[in-house]
Amino acid sequence: MKEYDFIQPAHLDVLKEIGNIGAGHAATSLSALLGKTIEMSVPEARVIPFQDLPDRMGGSENEIAAIYARIHGDTPGSVYFFSDVSHSESLIQQLTGRPVYGTDRSSLNDYATSAYLETGNIVIGSFLSAFADLTSLTVSRDVPDLSIDMAGAIISHGLSQLLIQSDVAIFIETQMKIDGEKTSRNFGSILLLFDPETFDVLFQSLGVNIDE
């Protein structure tokens, strides 16, 4: 992991704090939407070989429902809101008050699809606006889109820009769940991936030194 030798625990702590505040805002929005309390995990910020990312999403072939948006501006990157398919079904039920029969995109009706997409949109939007406030950086995002498929296939989409220059990924991840629900895994995770060239900009604006 030589490429990111300059990343110290202090840098990762700063990223964790960003994850904490960003996800806090996202959880508040989601909680307002659902009328339920949302719990969130302590965020993780780590530098890992990119090929280990699918394992963090339940394995390369694990079926997930993911909302993706490309980030533009001062810190280009990728952002995902994703859940295991079974948990996305329960989330959609909570949102729409209607049962869901399978999450094949064709069997999932437009109403359920747009409910889930809108949830992801709100979560990603509040996360990024908190990120922008905290860092005083300008970030914008594309219109988010939904894919229900294998985790490996979904993550490779967001990795494609990053991999041009790097074999490692730096990410911030926070998991959320509805308070009191008995789920062993989260129902929703926010995953933020940075393009390698963004670190100078990011840490500079946060007043953290990079000694290369």
């Binding site: 072939e61 294998m150 296939a153 490779s156």
Partner: peptide, 23 residues
């Protein structure tokens, strides 16, 4: 075979890779 890897079959072992998206 993982992402960005290459492997060879020596003794007719099947070769497998999972989660191909844009790859």
């Amino acid at each position: 075979i993982g992402m960005a890897e290459i492997a060879y079959s020596e003794l007719s072992q099947p070769l497998r890779t999972s989660g191909l998206g844009s790859c």
